[in-house]
Amino acid sequence: MPVSKSLITEHTYEADLRLLQIELVKLQRHIIQKGKRLLVIFEGRDTAGKDGSIKSITEHLSPRDSRVVALNKPSLREEGEWYFQRYVAELPTAGEFVLFNRSWYNRAGVEKVMGFCTDEQYKQFMNTVNDFESLLIGSDIELIKYYLDISKEEQADRLKDRAKDPLKQWKISPIDQKAQKMWNAYSEARNKMLKQTSSTDAPWTVINANDKKLAHLNLIADLLSRVDYPDKDKKILKIDPKIVMACPTNSKALPKLFK
C-alpha cells in the first residue's frame, strides 16, 4: 500500500503554504526587532513528519536568526551531566527563533520505551520537567510544544517507503525499525507524557499528521495564531480542529489519539 495521498492538491498546498510562510517572515522580523525568544518543540511518532514540518516553517526564514536543533545521543561526558544541561546550551537568545527536532522529551519517549534510562531517571524527569519549562517561560522564552501523531498503518507505509527511497536512507535507524513492534509501548509512554506534562504554562498541542500537507498548513496556522506580531493576516489562519487538537492541562482527558 502506498503512503496515503493528501486530500489537498499540490497547487493549493503550495499557494496556501506561501501565504503562511509570508506570515512567518513577518513573525521573524518582529522577533528580531523586539529581541524576542521563541522555542518550538516537535515530538511525535517515528515517520510522523517532524522533518518536513520544520522544513516548511524554516524554508524562507533567515538562517542567521533561526536554528533547527536535532541533537545526537549524549556523549559519555553528557551522560554525566544534569539531564537538561545540553539542551540549555541550545535555547534561543534574544531575537532568535529555535526549533527542536526532538527534545528533552526523549526521556519520556524513546529512552523510556527502549530502556535507555533507568526508572528513577524517568521518574525524576517527569517530576521536574514542568518546573523546568516554567522557569524558561518565566525568563521570557516563549515555548510552544507539538506532538505529531499518525496511525499504525500510516507509519508502516512510511517505513516501507523510507526503506525504498535512496534519498531517505539517512533516516533509517535501529530504533525506527522497532517502531511497529513497540507500538503499544510508545502509545502508553505518549499518553503518560501528554497527561503529566501538558501544564498550564506549557500545554501540548497534538497534530493529526496522517495527511502531511494538511498537517503542515494547520500546524503553521496554529503557531502563527498563538504568537503576537504586527500586520497579522488572521483571515488565512484557518485551523481544522480535527487536525490541531489542544491537550487539556491538569486533566486525565486526552484528545482523540491513534491507539
Rank of each mutant, 00 (worst) to 15 (best):
I57M: 15
P241L: 01
I150W: 08
K234A: 15
Q169N: 10
I141M: 03
A94G: 02
E23K: 09
N250R: 01
D119N: 11
T47K: 00
C117I: 05
K34G: 09
D119M: 03
K164D: 14
N250Q: 13
A70V: 02
K232I: 13
D222N: 14
E133I: 02
Y105E: 05
L91A: 08
R158I: 13
S225V: 01
D140N: 12
T197G: 06
I239E: 13
Q28H: 10
A70T: 04
S173I: 07
H60Y: 10
R64A: 12
F258A: 05
F132P: 04
E96K: 13
I207T: 05
S53A: 04
A189R: 04
L136Q: 12
N208D: 15
I57T: 03
I22K: 12
V227P: 08
L99V: 13
K259Q: 09
A163W: 03
A15T: 15
S134T: 14
N218K: 01
E90C: 13
A70W: 09
I137G: 04
Q180L: 15
A185P: 00
N101P: 08
W183H: 07
E111C: 10
D233E: 15
P255A: 05
F116V: 07
Q33P: 00
I32C: 05
H30Y: 13
W204I: 04
S62C: 06
Q177E: 07
L159C: 04
H216Y: 03
V206N: 10
V40E: 09
A70M: 03
E14G: 01
E79P: 09
P92E: 02
K181S: 06
V129M: 08
D228P: 00
D46H: 02
Q196M: 06
H30E: 13
D228Q: 03
W104M: 02
G95L: 06
S4N: 00
L76H: 12
R45G: 00
H216V: 12
A48V: 04
T12P: 01
L148Y: 15
W183M: 07
Y186K: 05
E59K: 13
P92N: 03
D233L: 14
T9Q: 10
T205V: 12
D161F: 15
K252H: 01
E78I: 07
W82H: 02
D131S: 13
S53M: 00
I172C: 01
K252V: 00
R190G: 09
P92S: 02
N210P: 03
I220L: 11
A246K: 12
I239Q: 12
K259H: 08
A221C: 11
D222R: 11
R102N: 10
H30N: 14
D16L: 00
F84A: 09
Q196I: 00
M126D: 08
K34P: 05
P241M: 03
R102A: 11
N72P: 08
C117R: 07
R18G: 14
D140Y: 06
K259A: 08
K164R: 11
L17H: 08
L237N: 12
K73Y: 02
